[in-house]
Nucleic acid binder design. Structure first.
Length: 421
RNA sequence: GGAGGGGUGGCCGAGUGGUUGAAGGCGGCGGUCUUGAAAACCGUUUCCCGAUUUCAUCGGGACGGGGGUUCGAAUCCCUCCCCCUCCGCCA
């Protein structure tokens, strides 16, 4: 959520941010509502001040056993007026907050202009795109031929867009989860978290999925939602808390399955494991002070890159343009892994600095020093990495002429094999 | 799922309709004393919103959340959430 004070004191900053995002909002409606909110508040507060004062007089009179009937009759009318104005004020407040909650974050000045993926900027690449002296196959063909990947039975058990892994295929998924978590906890300083996999609507509001993106989510009958990413759980780890500034930055990492309904998204470009209703992911998350957040974003990206480097997977780092960024982000880098079978780079990690956007929604604050004033902290999140897509990248990059798949060296001990065949 | 009990400040814990943002204690912070420390003693110690001559003052709000009763609610009523105990069920 944006700072409401921005609307009042720097509406042009909001307008410019929305322009850069190619998001159309009616700023006037919002600023008008904000003014009405304050006007209603000051009216009702004046009356409440009167009521409080007279109530004390009544108490004093009663203590002395004197008559307070006149005051009580007068206050009865004031009370009715307060009730009416209170309802009006809270109605405006709710309307204002709902509108504000649907407005995306303002892009950082360092984010390039642009409308969509085509305008993103490649900032660096690692490794050469893998080439073969035979014709490379996509991972879904490799996986199906080796009996590792089974979409037909997954659809029977659940529905289209779910996947089923067999044998070494399942073991690879499990080995990747362990490898990622071990790397981040043992070498990158993250604390491991095993969260609930379903979340309450309030949690989704704090991280930014609600109220605007309900159609992307599954929902349980109980009103809970299977989490679309553990960014949600990690954001809410400290919701409504005031952290000791001396404990920042805090680094957390969590595995979770992720569930996305994505009703609108059906397309040919998302075959295989690339876009599923359920996928596994290890997420990295940081709570930081405002002044260190941008540096922390760089090191977050480096932590995700380390995973790809150890797996020997060629990738490039892309700085997203303003029009392509997610709702809550101030600045985002995507890591795109090379998929020789598909013949293109595919997003495998997205690392964002969300500034104070989620912190304001979730009431996540810190004190610089004991007794200091609470301030909103900054939050960052990044995939480290998407496991299904890593599975696919390994299959495509480590495939051999006979259709078997070599196991990356760092996974061989955990897998107990060096070739999947 | 059934029955019962309970949710008050960083923590413990008083408070059942009228200066109670909330006794007392612990913890924290500052001070006195002390060579130093401890003890003792004194003081201090929440957050949000709004206004203004904006770091200071004033006003409003918050005792799990929301709603109601009332001139007035931490205190009474309704509802939801959470925690505890016992029973049932269960990986």
């Amino acid at each position: 959520m944006l700072d409401p004070k921005l609307l009042r004191y720097a509406p042009e900053v909001v307008a410019d941010g929305m322009r850069r995002r190619h998001t159309v909002i009616d700023l006037d409606v919002l600023t008008t509502l904000e003014e009405r909110r304050r006007a209603a508040l000051s009216r009702v507060e004046t009356l409440k001040a009167e009521r409080n004062a007279v109530s004390q007089q009544i108490a004093a009179l009663k203590k002395r056993k004197e008559d307070a009937g006149g005051h009580i009759t007068a206050m009865r009318r004031v009370g009715e007026e307060i009730k009416r104005l209170d309802e009006e004020a809270s109605g405006i407040e709710v309307e204002f907050t709902e509108l504000l909650m649907a407005i995306p974050n303002i892009p950082d000045a360092g984010v390039p202009d642009g409308e969509g993926a085509a305008d993103n900027v490649v900032v660096r690449a690692w490794g050469e795109p893998t080439t073969f002296d035979f014709s490379a196959k996509p991972h879904w063909e490799l996986g199906a031929a080796l009996g590792l990947l089974d979409f037909e039975r997954a659809a029977r058990i659940a529905q289209a867009r779910f996947s089923l892994l067999w044998g070494a295929g399942a073991a690879l998924e499990r080995a990747l989860m362990n490898f990622f978590l071990n790397l981040h906890t043992r070498e990158h300083g993250y604390t491991e978290v095993w969260p609930p996999f379903v979340v309450a609507p309030e949690s989704l509001r704090a991280s930014g999925q609600l109220p605007k993106f309900e159609e992307d989510l599954f929902r349980l009958r109980e009103g809970l939602y299977p989490a679309p990413t553990s960014e949600v759980q990690l954001t809410n780890l400290h919701r409504d808390e005031i952290l000791d500034g001396a404990t920042l930055p805090r680094y957390y990492t969590a595995y979770s399955p992720c569930f996305r309904a994505e009703a609108g998204a059906a397309g040919q470009e998302s075959r295989g494991l690339i876009r599923q209703h359920q996928f596994d992911k290890v997420e990295m998350y940081k709570f930081t002070t405002p002044e260190t957040a941008m540096d922390e974003l760089e090191s977050l990206v480096a932590d995700a890159e380390a995973v790809l480097q150890r797996l020997g997977l060629p990738y490039r780092v892309v700085l997203l343009c303003a029009g392509d960024m997610g709702f809550s982000a101030v600045k985002t880098y995507d890591l795109e892994v090379w998929m020789p079978g598909m013949g293109k780079y595919v997003e495998i990690s997205s690392c964002s600095n969300c500034g104070d956007f989620q912190a304001r929604r979730g009431g996540i604050r810190f004190r610089r020093e004991p007794g200091g004033k609470p301030e909103l902290l900054h939050t960052l999140n990044g995939s480290g990495l998407a496991i299904g897509r890593t599975w696919a990248a390994i299959a495509e990059n480590y495939q051999q002429a006979d259709g078997t798949i070599r196991v990356p060296e760092v996974l061989q001990a955990a897998m107990g094999m060096d070739v999947m065949k």
